[in-house]
């Protein structure tokens, strides 16, 4: 039977619930970055739906898993916060192959990097040992001076010289956005001083000219979802 009324626009709720896929999901993720009101609505739904977690039956995790996690942390200890990324390397490589037919936006950055033809060898004079850094002026969306950012391609570290105003009990999170792919978190911006954020190995290929660096306001401790949930307060493009 035909429905007389058009369906209400519930995109924010649909994104929080996780029912969207493909192009619809990609479009919703772009709105998340571009529209603070939409982002707030998604967060409202995530908070409400979180009450359902109480209904989820607990299942004891296998005894060996705690030891496996600790072993991974031990291996990654030398690399500091990069431990998880290193451990994930093999996983990312596997994914890049599995996702060859995928339209999965979350994986698009990695996938494009892994599937594109290998670049022709570039002749580099041996005296040049480090490529010049990419720089960006991250401009606040309202007012104020841009924040200088530099990405050192040799070390894979982003330095951000300055912070943004963050409401009490919230955190500022930095994102890299390549083209129309979903934003990828680079970590949290400390309250003061120059931030040094180590870019995970799987994301380094996405750190190129035209990639947008954006700062959003998130719940304390950062986005619980791995994607921006709060308003974007500053953004700027990397350039060589």
């Amino acid at each position: 039977m035909a429905t007389p009324d058009p369906d209400p626009d519930m995109t924010a709720a649909e994104l929080a619930l996780g029912v969207l896929d493909g192009d619809e999901r990609a479009a919703a993720l772009r709105r998340l970055v571009a529209e603070p009101g939409f982002a707030a609505e998604v967060e409202w739904w995530r908070d409400r739906l979180a009450a359902l977690f109480a209904d989820w039956p607990a299942v004891a995790a296998p005894a060996h898993l705690a030891a496996r996690i600790e072993a991974t942390l031990d291996r990654g200890a030398a690399g500091g916060a990069g431990g998880a990324a290193n451990d994930n390397d093999h996983r990312w490589r596997t994914l890049a192959i599995l996702a060859s037919i995928a339209a999965c936006v979350l994986l698009a950055v990695t996938t494009l990097l892994m599937l594109r033809p290998a670049p022709l060898p570039v002749r580099v004079p041996v005296t040049v040992t480090t490529p010049p850094p990419l720089i960006a002026a991250i401009a606040p969306t309202t007012k104020g001076a841009p924040i200088a950012a530099a990405y050192d391609r040799a070390s894979g570290v982003v330095r951000i010289a300055g912070g943004v105003d963050v409401p009490a009990g919230r955190s500022a999170e930095v994102w890299a956005i390549r083209g129309t792919a979903a934003p990828r978190s680079l970590g949290l911006l400390p309250a003061r001083g120059t931030a040094r954020l180590a870019v995970p190995a799987a994301l380094r290929g996405a750190m190129a000219a035209e990639t947008v660096l954006a700062i959003s306001i998130e719940p304390a401790g950062g986005s619980p979802t791995g994607l921006p949930t709060g308003p974007v307060v500053a953004a700027g493009k990397l350039s060589g």
């Binding site: 996690i69 942390l73 990654g76 916060a81 431990g83 998880a84 949290l188 719940p219 304390a220 401790g221």
Partner: peptide, 15 residues
């Protein structure tokens, strides 16, 4: 849990 280990540093007990 690796994510929790890596991101707990910025966790603030306001949530």
């Amino acid at each position: 849990y690796l994510t929790i280990w890596n991101r707990a540093g910025a966790y603030q007990p306001g949530r």
